[in-house]
């Protein structure tokens, strides 16, 4: 062993994080330890704060330091549209794009017969309560274009059909800057199925 057990423990903890392996964890640990005042201590403080104050929003399932989360309590947001996403990472991606001005619902996963994730495991209670309260006009199903994602979208559609809300899904097909000749046939099939009529 080259270093003390404390430093090895730090490297081992870092190596478990997404995007890190043993070598990159060692480099990160070295960078932190070489500049403790400017890197290590602020990071420790930020992590302690996050650990102390972060919660899962009881309404939408987002991660935030306030309850309900900053999105659910923002009066400037359109309360009549809920965008359903699979994970908090998907929510952050949509927020980064800045295109959705309504609320969110984080499901926490998608229906998967093989992994045993069933309808009871989906976090939809908060959304159903908001729909029942009559504030919601549209539900956007922003789930992945996978078999599980599409199955979940169809299941949610069947659950929401009685609720009297507009149900929509994200468009599927050719990405920005994509050339048709290099697209796989699955993407082309989905794009052709989801084609739009051009308004004059």
């Amino acid at each position: 062993m080259w270093s003390s057990p404390e430093i090895e423990a730090l490297i081992a903890r870092l190596a478990r994080l997404p995007g890190f392996g043993p070598r990159s964890a060692r480099r990160a640990a070295l960078a932190l330890l070489q500049e403790p005042e400017t890197r290590l201590k602020p990071l420790v403080e930020a992590m302690q704060n996050a650990a102390r104050h972060s919660h899962t929003c009881p309404q939408c399932g987002n991660l935030d330091t306030q309850m309900p989360c900053i999105i659910c309590t923002d009066p400037a947001r359109d309360q009549s549209i809920i965008c359903v996403v699979e994970t908090v990472g998907d929510l952050w991606a949509l927020e980064r794009a800045g295109v959705h001005k309504g609320l969110y619902q984080v499901l926490g996963g998608t229906l998967s017969a093989l992994s045993g994730f069933g309808p009871d495991d989906l976090n939809i209670r908060g959304m159903m309560e908001r729909i029942a309260a009559g504030h919601v006009h549209e539900v956007v199903l922003a789930l992945g274009t996978t078999v599980d994602g599409a199955t979940t979208a169809h299941w949610l559609q069947s659950q929401l059909v009685e609720a009297g809300v507009v149900i929509s899904r994200l468009g599927q097909g050719v990405p920005m800057g994509g050339a048709l000749e290099v697209m796989d046939d699955g993407t082309l099939a989905a794009a052709l199925t989801a084609r739009r009529i051009l308004e004059p």
Binding site: T145, A150, Q157, Q172, D185, A189, A190, A194
Partner: peptide, 10 residues
């Protein structure tokens, strides 16, 4: 891709 044409068919 057998699933691609089925994404809109529950």
């Amino acid at each position: 891709h057998c699933a691609a044409p089925l994404l809109y068919s529950a």
